[in-house]
Design a protein around this nucleic acid. Structure first.
Lengths: 256, 256
DNA sequence: CCGGTTTATCGTCATGTCGACGATAAAGAG
DNA sequence: CTCTTTATCGTCGACATGACGATAAACCGG
C-alpha cells in the first residue's frame, strides 16, 4: 500500500495550469514537513531535555521530542515557536532558538515520507512550567538518561545527540550560555551551567577572570546576593555580546 | 487558484487506513522538498560559486544555485550528491559536503510550498569540469559579484551568503580548507586558499608555522616543486585531522 | 563573641600561542 | 653573477591560559 503522501503525488501533476509563475514538475514527491525541538534547560543540578509521551501510533506511549507538522503559510521558525508554546505552556519565546539540522531519511517515519527540521532551544528553568498539556504527557529528563537507552521514538535519539553536541560546542565560542539563566545571576551560577553542560569541573577563579574580562558578556548590576552561601556575590545580567573571543575551551570531560 | 501541493492535501486524508504504523493526520500540508547546493571552488585567483541558468518559470533565464527535487526513497545527502553529479558532470563526490540549513518561508517559491535543504560543497577546481550540461547553462561566478546584485532566483542570494559565512568560519577551526586543494599542494597554495576565502592577507611565515605545527593537518611527501617560482617548496597531502586546535583566527578583512 | 566553613574575588607565575618581522636558503631571470 | 622571488627558520614582545596562593565577607555552631 502506498503511503498517503506518495499516492497524492499523482494528483499534483494536473492540479494547476501554466502561467508566469510556472508549475511544479509532475513527478515531485510531496512530503510531510514537521519541526522537532531539542529544548534544554538546567534543573536540579542537571542538564535536562523536554520529552513528550506520544499518544498515537506510531511509537505510541514512547517518549519523543516535542514537535509537530508545519501549517500552511507558516515559516519554519514560526512553527517551532508555536509548537514550543503548545507543548510547554510557555508564555515567552525561549531565550535562544536556532535551527539545528534537517532529517529526511526515507524510512524514518513508517507513515510515509516525513521530513523534520530540528531546532535547538535553550531556556531557563522557571520560564518553562510544562503547564500546557497534562503532566503525564510531558516531562523533563536528564540528558544522561534520555538518549542512552534510545527509548526515543523515530530518530529522535540522533537528533538529541546532535542538539547536545551543538549546545556544548556553542557555549564555547558564543554567549548563549546565559540563555539558561534568569534575569540576574551570579558568576558561580553561570559557571555551574557550563559545568553541567560540559560534565566537567572549571576553576572558579579562572572562570571568573574569563567571563568578567570579556567585554559585554556580563553587565554588573551593583547588587549582591548570598543565595549560594559564603561571601556575597555580585549579580549580573546578560550583556549584548553574542560571540566569545577568544573562545572558552572545554577541558577533557571527566564525569564527577 | 490553489497551488498543486495545497490542493493535493485533500487527497492525502483518505488514502490510507489505520494499522500499527498509524497514519498521518488529515490536515498535514504536503510540501515539495528540494536540495540546493552552494558549491565553492578556488579558480583564477578567486573564490567562485557554481551557478546554473534556469530554463523554466519561475525566474526563467535567471541564475540560480544548482539543485532539484528530492526523489522518493532518496536521502537528503544522497539527493545533493546526485544533483551535483547531474549538473556538473562530476565523477567523484566533492571533497567536502555538509548540510547548511533549511529554507522554508511560505512564499519563497511562487509555485507553492517548496522547502529546500541547502548543502555546502567544497571542491578543487580540476575535479569540477562543468561538462554535464551545455556550457551556457552553468558557469562559475566569483562570489564577490554573485550575491551582490541579487540577480539570483528565489532566496538563493541569502543561501549563498549563509554558505559563504559557513565556509569562512569553518576553515578557522577545521581542516576543510584542504578540500579546495588537489592531491599534492604546497603550503603557499593552501595559504592562498585562506586568503581568497577570507579576502585578507596572511603572513607566510606565521601561516607556515601554524599549519606545519598542527598535528595531522598536512602530511609531508618529501618531494618538492618550483611551480610557484622561487625556492622549491615541499609538497604536502591532506592529513587525517578534521579539527584545528587552537583555531586559526581570521584577521579583520581588508580588501586587496 | 569567636573560630571554622563556605564561597567570592584578586594576584602571581610559568607556559604556550600569536603577530610582527629579521635572516637565511634555494631556485629562476637577466 | 647578481637580482628577484619564494620558502623556511628564528626571535621577540604581547597576551591568554591553567594552576594555585591569598584575602574578603558572609554563615554556622558553640
Amino acid at each position: 500500500m502506498p503511503s498517503p503522501l506518495e499516492s497524492s503525488a499523482a494528483t499534483t501533476a494536473h492540479a494547476n495550469g501554466g502561467g508566469a509563475a510556472g508549475r511544479l514538475p509532475p513527478d515531485v514527491v510531496p512530503v510531510a514537513l514537521s519541526v522537532d525541538l531539542v529544548l534544554l534547560t538546567v534543573r536540579e543540578e542537571q542538564l535536562q531535555v523536554l520529552l513528550v509521551r506520544r499518544g498515537i501510533e506510531p511509537y505510541r506511549d514512547r517518549w519523543a521530542l516535542p514537535g509537530g507538522f508545519v501549517r500552511p503559510g507558516e515559516d519554519l521558525a514560526e512553527a517551532a515557536v508555536r509548537e514550543l508554546a503548545e507543548e510547554t505552556g510557555l508564555r515567552h519565546p525561549p531565550a535562544h532558538l536556532e535551527q539545528l539540522a534537517t532529517y529526511g531519511a526515507p524510512d524514518r517515519d513508517p507513515r510515509g515520507r516525513v521530513v523534520t527540521v530540528a531546532f535547538l532551544a535553550l531556556a531557563p528553568q522557571s520560564r518553562t512550567p510544562i503547564a500546557g498539556t497534562d503532566a503525564a504527557a510531558s516531562r523533563w529528563e536528564p540528558v544522561s538518561t534520555a538518549g542512552g537507552g534510545s527509548g526515543l521514538a523515530f530518530d529522535h535519539a540522533a537528533i538529541l545527540a546532535d542538539g547536545l553536541e551543538r549546545a556544548r560546542a556553542k557555549i564555547e565560542y558564543s554567549a548563549v550560555a546565559t540563555a539558561f539563566c534568569e534575569g540576574e545571576f551570579t558568576v558561580a551560577e553561570l559557571r555551574r551551567i557550563y559545568e553541567l553542560v560540559w560534565s566537567s569541573r572549571l576553576d572558579p577563579r579562572n572562570f571568573h577572570r574569563k567571563v568578567t574580562g570579556t567585554a559585554d558578556f556580563l553587565v554588573p548590576t551593583g547588587r549582591f546576593t548570598t543565595r549560594d552561601g559564603g561571601r556575597p556575590a555580585e549579580l549580573y545580567r546578560r550583556g549584548d555580546a553574542t560571540v566569545l573571543h577568544p573562545a572558552m575551551l572545554r577541558p577533557v570531560p571527566r564525569l564527577p
